[in-house]
Design a protein around this nucleic acid. Structure first.
Length: 390
DNA sequence: TCTGGGGTCCTAGGACCC
DNA sequence: TCTGGGGTCCTAGGACCC
């Protein structure tokens, strides 16, 4: 049986959720990401009305305000977006037993062999689109193709509220007709390389030998490009295996120079990471610290320990020691972050670390983390001093 | 107009072991 | 008697995605 995939992608997701929840925003340019006057905020999502002013994702809010001063600016509500996302993913699951969620607002559906239930792929896509709209008030763009990579490209062709079908057998022709800028997985640096080598279209890349592609782009990426421009399955994305990580970071409105202020922020970030770790039933032996200085230069330090992190105290001790080793004093700090890599499921052995005193400490920490999560402003200092007093 | 936050994957090179 | 090659683990940095 011929494999067939749908890529379903919500249109301007965060902005559309806001317009659904607040009818007074409908038809207006909505910009989610920050309020006018916020320093160092960027646009997370711009509604299609806002895009007409030239506003787009990743643009600094200050620039968006210049382009679109009358827009509706919002900081956003991730909890609400996640809730809406779950509703939509549940709908996707009605149409395919194999839904691979790629991010909060998009997924691949393996729709191979679903004809008997939903009719031909185009019909399935139309049913899916109208069900999503009926049940959630949001529009979704769908691409249909014989492999996931092409389905992903297809869903972007006729956004918003689009439906684009690549007939089996026409994958290569479709890709070769696209500009190189449309290659998913080739970002700004690669686009620069394309320009440098005079590669304007996918067809230009198609004409290069595998050897040339490898010499320009490296082994893995060269192979990826070779396959992508032929309309072959080019799997850039996670196949479900592989390592996972968990991190939190914060950019400050004004660069920090004060050690105590920096340590307090670092502790705050460790709390966030620890809270998520405790709720995930995962563990990790590798910590990372990220520092971005006022000049935007960014450094990352990692360290792997023999024993996994199991309490906030341990996490904070390790993170702050690594931070102090890496930190160049006197340079303004724009961002700090901390994370855990190579996450694995909590082992039986780890359970032994939680007996007696360890268990008591962990319970206390869980309480503090819970309080701080509920009342972030009130409990922060208390949390830190409680731990410091031990 | 200076550039968020949370992820994934790839590469190159060093340490160490057999 | 100054030097092989493979495997594994680890670190730092970069590119990309939404």
């Amino acid at each position: 049986m011929m494999a067939y995939f749908a890529h379903a992608d919500l249109d301007a997701f965060y902005a559309s959720v806001e317009q659904f929840d607040h009818p007074e925003y409908r038809g207006k340019p909505v910009i989610v990401g920050g309020l006018p006057g916020d320093r160092r905020s960027v646009v997370s999502t711009a509604s299609y009305e806002a895009r007409q002013y030239g506003v787009h994702s990743a643009m600094p809010i200050a620039q968006a305000v210049k382009l679109c001063p009358r827009g509706v600016y919002l900081r956003g509500n991730m909890g609400r977006y996640r809730e809406k996302s779950r509703e939509i993913m549940d709908i996707f699951a009605d149409f395919s037993p194999t839904v691979q969620q790629l991010s909060i607002d998009e997924a691949f559906l393996d729709i191979t062999g679903t004809e008997a239930l939903f009719g031909p792929p185009r019909e399935l896509a139309e049913k899916l689109k109208s069900k999503v709209f009926r049940d959630t008030g949001l529009t979704v763009s769908v691409g249909l193709a014989s492999n996931k990579y092409i389905a992903k490209i297809a869903s972007g062709i006729s956004k918003p509220d689009g439906l684009y079908v690549i007939e089996p057998g026409s994958e290569e022709k479709f890709m070769r007709g696209l500009p190189a800028a449309k290659i998913w997985g080739a970002g700004s640096k690669t686009q620069e390389l394309f320009r440098k080598h005079g590669l304007a279209s996918c067809d230009d890349i198609y004409r290069l030998s595998p050897e040339t592609l490898h010499s320009i782009f490296g082994q893995a990426f060269g192979t990826f490009l070779y396959r992508a421009v032929r309309g072959e399955s080019a799997e850039l994305f996670d196949d479900g295996r592989g390592s996972h990580s968990m991190s939190a970071e914060r950019t400050f409105e004004y660069d920090l120079y004060d050690d105590f202020a920096i340590e307090t922020e670092l502790f705050n970030i460790c709390q966030t990471v620890m809270w998520r770790l405790l709720n995930s039933r995962l563990q990790s032996r590798t910590i990372s610290v990220k520092i971005r200085y006022a000049d935007f230069s960014t450094e990352i330090a990692r360290e792997t320990f023999a024993e996994p992190v199991c309490t906030l105290n341990v996490l904070y001790d390790r993170v702050s020691a690594l931070f102090r080793r890496k930190h160049r004093k006197g340079k303004g700090v724009r961002l700090i972050g901390a994370g855990l890599m190579n996450l694995e499921n909590v082992s039986a052995r780890q359970g032994e670390l939680f007996n007696g005193e360890g268990e008591k400490e962990r319970r206390l920490e869980e309480m503090i983390l819970e309080i701080n999560r509920k009342y972030p402003d009130a409990a922060l200092r208390r949390g830190r001093s409680l731990l410091a007093d031990e």
